[in-house]
Each structure stands twice: as C-alpha cells, then as structure tokens.
Write a protein that binds this DNA or RNA. Sequence first.
DNA 1: CTCTATATGTCAGTTTCCTTACATGTCACA
DNA 2: TGTGACATGTAAGGAAACTGACATATAGAG
Lengths: 141, 141
Amino acid sequence: MVNTPPQVGYMLKQAQSLLHFRMEEALRPLQLTVSQYSCLHHLRREPGISAAALARATFVTRQSMNAMLQQLIDRDLVARPSRAESGRALPALLTDAGADALEAAEKLVDGVEHRMLEGLSGNESAALARGLAACVGALEG
Amino acid sequence: MVNTPPQVGYMLKQAQSLLHFRMEEALRPLQLTVSQYSCLHHLRREPGISAAALARATFVTRQSMNAMLQQLIDRDLVARPSRAESGRALPALLTDAGADALEAAEKLVDGVEHRMLEGLSGNESAALARGLAACVGALEG
DNA sequence: CTCTATATGTCAGTTTCCTTACATGTCACA
DNA sequence: TGTGACATGTAAGGAAACTGACATATAGAG
C-alpha cells in the first residue's frame, strides 16, 4: 500500500481553525476580530490601499471588506476620504489610534504564532513555510 | 535582524483559503459543500457517530452540524433514528446513496489535494504534515 | 472619438454559522 | 438513593459572510 499522505488537507484545516480560534481568543480583550486585525495589518503594510485590494489580501469579498472598514472608521481606527481624487478607488489609511491598536494586537498575535511554532526548529519552520508556499503556488492561477 | 519566519500564520490562512475554494469549485457539480463532504467523510470513518462528535471533528458547532445533517437526511445521503436506544446521542449513518456520493466526491477532492502537493517531494510532503501536526499540538489543550 | 473591458464601490437579499439558553439523558460518587 | 457533573439535542436570535446586480470611473482598442 502506498504511503498515503495522512490527510494534509484536513490537517491544514485543523491547524488553521485552531490558530484562528487562539487568535480570536487573544484579541478579544482589544475588541478586535481576526479579520479586523488582518485588515489593520495590511493597511500598515500598504497605506492608501483600496478596499477591493484589501479584500483580496484578506480572503473576503469587497462587500465584506467595505462593511468591515466602515466599522473600523466608526471606531476611528481607519480613515478614508469620502471622494476619490482620481478613479473610483477610495484609499484607506490607519489613524494614529489604529496604529496603536495594531501594535497592541500584534504583540498578542505574535505570542500565539510563537506558541504555535515553539515545537519546531528553525529548519522545520522554514520547511513548513516553504511547503505552504508551494501549496499556494500549485493551487492558484 | 532575526530571520523572521515570513508570516507562517498568514500563509496557513492563505493555503487553507485557497484549498477550500478549489474544493468548493470541484464539488459544485455534485451539489456538495466542503463542510458536507467533510461530514460524509467522517461518517464513513466512524459510522454511528453522534452529531456533537461530528461537529468537533469538522470544526463547527453542534447546532450547525445538526442543521447540516438534517439537510443531508432530506437528500437521503444520511440516516438517523428518531429516538436513541440509549442515551441522548442519535447515531448518524451513511445511506447507500450517501456512500456513493462520497465516493464520487472523494475522487474530485483527491484530485485537488494531489494538485496542491504535486510540487512537493515525498519528504517535503511528510515534513509539511509533521509541521502542521506540531502546530496543532502546540495550540491545543 | 467611441466603445468595450476592467475595476471599484454600493445596495439588497440570502445563507451559514455562531452565541445564548434550556430540556433531557447518563454516569460517578457520596 | 439521589445528586451533581457532563454530554447531547434543540430552539431563537444575531452577526458575518457570500451572491447577484447595478452605477461609476479609468484605460485601451478600434
């Protein structure tokens, strides 16, 4: 019998689900969801990005992202002009409060990620990252 | 600067999200969602399992699982007694049609998983699986 | 210049899943 | 015996995501 890879897809789901749960747990004191954290994180990486591009980066639809951005705007964590200078895309930016919240959230999330990887050596972590990247590359396009 | 592991959590999310999308795509002709496939798959592995146990295995709440089971029962893919012989748990079982649907779905899903792993050697696949298992172990409990 | 393709934002409706809460059944143990 | 802890099923309501549809703005082809 062939050495069947023991359900890599299932293990992927299991790991992602558990990581999401732990992150949600860690972020609860800050009143942030994982999706909101991911949104803020990408906003810092690419200030002025459009909601549609942000949606693609965080794996939700642009409708969901616009709703989420509105929530973050209501909490003064994100700012967005009401009209575009050019084109339709409205650039989104972190406010100072948003940057502060992100920094606090990042500490908590980094703790979870560190815990997740603590049983792996540097080589093993790198191999895991490479494997995941290969999976993504093979499935997209 | 420390060799920061490049966002293993994010890559996990990315890979899982893309895999889910491809599976959904592959299963669409059979009118099955990924969650439903996962449910049928576990039902074959553990016939007579309760909805609550099934829910834990597929990472949803038992309320969601009971709703999903009802759908599958309505389509004659799953059968379940109306009363328990002992205890409260109602054992769920695949019908013949359910087993057939699962077999067809499995071919499609295996194709997706194979595609996902095609760029990886046997050693690399095994390393990926071990890495994921280590992550799960570190995050649970 | 005109027209098509593409990308963005938005509205409406639906689905799916979750949270909270409660009733029921079994088991361990005092 | 009976009582408390635990697991299961179920109901009701809400939150978050998706799909489908449409208007708008830009760029490019003809």
